[in-house]
Design a protein around this nucleic acid. Sequence first.
DNA 1: ATCCTCTATTTGCAGATGACAAATAGCATT
DNA 2: AATGCTATTTGTCATCTGCAAATAGAGGAT
Lengths: 131, 131
Amino acid sequence: MGRRRHGAGMGMGPGGAPRPRRIRRFVEPAVLLLLHRAPAHGYALLEGLRELGLEEYPMDASAIYRILYDLEAQGMVVSQASREGSAGPPRRVYSLTSQGDAYLNAWVEDLRLTDQVLHNFFEAYDAQDHS
Amino acid sequence: MGRRRHGAGMGMGPGGAPRPRRIRRFVEPAVLLLLHRAPAHGYALLEGLRELGLEEYPMDASAIYRILYDLEAQGMVVSQASREGSAGPPRRVYSLTSQGDAYLNAWVEDLRLTDQVLHNFFEAYDAQDHS
DNA sequence: ATCCTCTATTTGCAGATGACAAATAGCATT
DNA sequence: AATGCTATTTGTCATCTGCAAATAGAGGAT
């Protein structure tokens, strides 16, 4: 039987160089954390994420709005339309529910495990010779 | 215009509890690291990953074999069939190429950045009150 | 008034990824 | 020949991601 596969595989950088990458769904906990501080609308969160140290992270407005939408569907946040001092379409201001707060905590626990796994990896890597 | 979305969103745990998760494509660098140590076949890598501290990581044999296949297509590894002392179908033993070695290094650099982002996040989280 | 620009949000889509299930394959026992 | 173990391969589906573009409202310029 031949050896075939189903997708193209690994992401490619501009020059065709393979480009390794990142934590999954990381914007979600980041958004939760920002909302834990204070209610905010999507665009503000987009900026807040940069300040959180995610400048290097690939950031897409649509990702944030979709995450917000999903979080609301899950009851993690609630939103209300707002007409305050905005230029542009009506904003929607989101705030964290207590469920969302618990979810943030769960995320943090999970991320600490992830961090541990990462460090195991670094340790193993550093123990190797790279002459 | 209505507010709709394209997928269902966030992964769910068994009990329906939202389940946050992990680093993307992390098995790839782990496999590269193992191959940096010594050539191996898929099944052996599967076990090697556990020892690397990925027990908690969701691990699926198919993921590994597909990653191996992709890596080979990219020239990161080369393989040869082997008939040695195996019970079961013919094994394929993979070894790292110099390109693959460079790729591993790129992965590590990227993961260190990821680690940094993670720590920024923890810091911000811990600075918050969770009374 | 019309056009442009800036702020914001929403939508569409294609390719990538991950989780799970099951098929396949060969050897050794029973 | 049936069962069990080691190993590899394939299929499928539900998401997830990145990118592009459509939509929307307010203010300012021509």
